[in-house]
Design a binder for these strands. Structure first.
Lengths: 163, 163
DNA sequence: TATTGTTATACTCTATAACTATA
DNA sequence: TATAGTTATAGAGTATAACAATA
């Protein structure tokens, strides 16, 4: 089988055997790491009838600072049409509230008291799972990983657009 | 607002301001890092009329070792019903082929020659984007990140099931 | 009887384009 | 005219349960 392109096309890189090669893909490693950790948290969202994107929105608003739809789309990795539905669902449950904005185009929202309470409840309920992963992996490594992930994102976002 | 639970409930942790708090979530950091990097690769999949899950399946089979549906589900983070559709679509395009297995229950597949060729083409086409991210982030850090991600996954999967 | 996949079904998210309202 | 969101619509993935075939 043909190998991956290399700096010098005359010396193609061999593709190593299965697991080894497959784990070298960054995006796959990110996906699998997320799946294995997220799986442990999803049941808390389920118990509160929240989808994971909905939980991300609550988390993004958790410190009480109102945010507009565009910022929420970016931070929560949700496309605008999805966010529209999510904001409507959360508002119907009384978990968030639209707040006026000088720019009337912007859809600015903030957590209500019940919304804050629900998020705090989720944090408390999931704390054991979080700590379990933290301990098994090591707090130092976890901090290193978080820093690397955020740095990778910032650097990648700063790269010139491929379009 | 109430803060996150802590080891000693009497001293609740304060929730720091927005970006700071939000970036402390592992699963969100994983999602955002994946989004920012994946975005650069998706167009290559689009150009070949492949969805990202389909691309993962090709990648998992790239070294030529046939795999069964269960293994593919795990490695590619795809649920069985989705994989059934994906395998059917890839087989209809002649990119994969079912191979006989002593256990007739198992759906074992391997890449065809056109399948290998298409995957190799994708690797070549996306090589520049991969190298661009690698250089901007640093090869050493990238290797560290990959190792941490795979280790986190292995450790988390080994934890006792929360169910 | 347990395991491996497939089918059925409902829901959510993804993605693009067209549209509305505001700046 | 440009920007921020919403609506419309099609398609793909998510998730559960029920089912079929094989071990």
């Amino acid at each position: 089988m043909k190998a991956a392109a290399s700096a010098t096309p005359d010396t193609p890189l061999p593709i190593p055997s299965g697991k080894e090669y497959y784990e070298r893909s960054l995006t796959v490693a990110l996906l699998r790491a997320r799946e294995s950790t997220m799986r442990r948290f999803k049941r808390y969202a389920d118990a509160q009838d929240l989808t994971l994107p909905q939980w991300r929105v609550l988390r993004a608003l958790a410190d009480g600072v109102p945010l507009d739809a565009g910022t929420l789309c970016q931070r929560c990795v949700i496309l605008p049409p999805s966010l529209t539905r999510i904001l409507r669902a959360l508002a119907e449950r009384g978990l968030i509230l639209q707040v006026p904005c000088t720019d009337a185009r912007r859809h600015m929202v903030t957590l209500t008291e019940p919304g804050k309470a629900l998020f705090d409840e989720l944090v408390i309920q999931s704390e054991d799972s979080r700590r379990q992963i933290d301990c098994a992996f090591g707090e130092d490594k976890m901090q290193t990983l978080l820093d690397l992930l955020n740095e990778l994102r910032e650097i990648t976002e700063a790269l010139p657009d491929p379009d």
